[in-house]
Design a protein around this nucleic acid. Structure first.
Lengths: 210, 210, 210, 210
DNA sequence: AATGAATGAGTGTTCATTCAT
DNA sequence: AATGAATGAACACTCATTCAT
């Protein structure tokens, strides 16, 4: 019983930590439990990471990196969100991202609510998305020879509270929601997309549309 | 000695706990710190409460009660949300509630994300709101002699992800948001209301409106 | 089983720590062992002290205070060290102090040898003794109308290496020495005093004497 | 890769350990730090040494061997300590030894103070020196046809507390002393020799002299 | 000879909770 | 109603040592 998979130890630790942090929160997580779940000796965790905090840092770095990667993809891939196929593809990409990162998103939402949080990158990350949107929309206005009539702040509030956060909440609460309302994953996803179109997307079109 | 305000000790403990739970999360909170902030001896906390958990329970009970009270008020008070004055009054009431309970809302959001949470009443509470909405809307349809064409689930998804949660998120993140985007409380509130009308309320009208 | 002697807990902790630090060194000491020896719960140690270090600090403070107290006594009490009775009384006082503080002296000698020691007050404390001596001797010279012909440094070297340190070493090694050479405490003390007179005191007289 | 000086690894480990033990004490020393300072992999330490203890053992063996070598030299080289040149040469040899072994002497002094020390060879080593002195002095008495009137114990106390230990203390504290009193190495050495002559050597002459 | 990875047994410290008064 | 003292069970983190290569 030893280390034929020694190369994976660090990844197994990260994976275990991600799950446990999501299940019980960072403060509720025990390093012993992470070690058990990862199937490694507790001391090995401190061989790879300076502290429990450092594990979270590394997880967040990955989340941020994946988020950036998603954004750079979607921005170029879907030039016209009014087209049904593009909107659907965009939603699929984003919800897939959300679901596959739901653990980290839960942790991020939780940590960013702490007032003294060292991990308050959430707003900064969201702002980068918003800046992307802003650029994208302004380009549309430009192409039509129109001046963009809305403030950055207006856009920020809309994107944050009715665009980004609903998707994050979808990631964080879909499991519980499906349980409570006895919905399948697919059912919830399709309903969520419909609702998202009716709210956020519809507002988009009103503001920037046509 | 020094107990002229002894009557308030329990309230001071609850107040201190609410703040600290919101600041660092339930697991991150220390009973010592709650005692310090409340200005009472640590053992006194155990005179009034069975455990740290029991403090949280009592806080949540109050949140639920206040929530119910808010709901029963608004339902009867604003019969026609399409009227501008009633919509604004409704939003004011709700956002005021959100802001004045932001600490508890933060805690509730955090705790309800834990998979094994003993405090997962969030969805149940939300469902009660949704049931209220449903009833209210069905009455409108009835009064017009029309059948209500939408499923409970459809409504639940919409109310939860684009109605209730944005308001909760407003409570939980408004401070951070105002800081980041250098907005005043009033500015954010007004923008949020505009955006909320454009998204959630507009969808309402599309679905149930006219 | 509780706390009829609760008032003494802190003192018992200090006493236990003093013994254990002397036996195995500060770094070799285990907080668990201190708790056991003191007959208290380990957590109680952290109720009274911020850390293991803080215990040592408080022990050293006491050693310093007792040292000062000894010095202020002896300085005034023995105006003429050349008189046999006064020299003997002085030696008795000092050796008694040394023996009764041997644990702390051991710790101080050990800690002050560490190059990065936070507890390097040894030389400062010794210098205060030396300053006292210097003043005392200068007064003698003054009273005879003579200029004091020796440098502070010369005196410091002599007092430190042949006066103070031998007494500290007596404290630190007398037990082992008595064991090794099968001498009784009294025998060693008397021999030490003779030898001390023959070396340090004799030099005193040569330098400052008559 | 990178083992052009592989032959020196063991020596580098010993050197690093000596420094670190002297700096922070044996118990305060970390095998990791020794490996870092020696520039070798931690596991290599266990290739050359059975344990951390074994490193100390080997260091002490060298100290003992060097000490013996010094003693055998000085005893034969300086037949008449009353002659100024011989006394000075003797002192130079001893202080040079002390300074060049100051790290190990610090460790020896520290370890020998622990009551349960496995490394309590200090007194045995000192006794060998004392035996040497005794022999040497007795020879002088014999050569004059006189009986030696002093006990071994009397001599032991004098040699240990006013001869050997001051020299060890010189080794252990000279750096700190020079810092505190702003003395150069040379200044301290010369002063120490004067003082040593005035105390220990003067007593020698009184006891065994002429 | 040398190393990166791994581990068991600690090690100082914390914390919710209880007790005696 | 209120408190200072006390405690058991963790807790994050450490460390000497070993293993596989």
């Amino acid at each position: 019983m030893a280390n034929k998979d020694s190369i994976n130890s660090k990844q197994r630790i990260l994976g275990a930590a991600e799950q446990i942090f999501a299940e019980v929160g960072f403060d509720g997580a025990r390093v012993d439990d992470i070690a058990s779940k990862a199937g490694v000796n507790k001391a090995l965790i401190y061989y790879y990471f300076e502290s429990k905090d450092a594990i979270l840092d590394e997880l967040f770095e990955k989340l941020m990196a994946d988020g950036k990667s998603l954004q750079s993809q979607t921005l170029s891939d879907y030039p016209d969100m009014n087209r049904e196929d593009m909107f659907m593809a965009f939603m699929e990409k984003n919800l897939e991202f959300a679901l596959s990162h739901k653990n980290l998103i839960k942790i991020a939402l939780t940590e960013s609510m702490k007032s003294n949080s060292k991990h308050s990158g959430l707003l900064k990350r969201c702002d980068m998305v918003i800046e992307g949107e802003l650029e994208y929309i302004k380009k549309i206005y430009d192409s039509k020879g129109l001046a963009f009539p809305y403030s950055k702040k207006e856009l920020a509030v809309m994107e944050f509270f009715t665009g980004i956060m609903p998707i994050f909440n979808y990631a964080a609460y879909s499991d519980a929601f499906e349980d409570y309302y006895e919905m399948s994953e697919t059912e919830l996803k399709e309903t969520f997309i419909r609702v998202f179109r009716l709210t956020h997307m519809s507002a988009h079109q009103k503001l920037y549309g046509k």
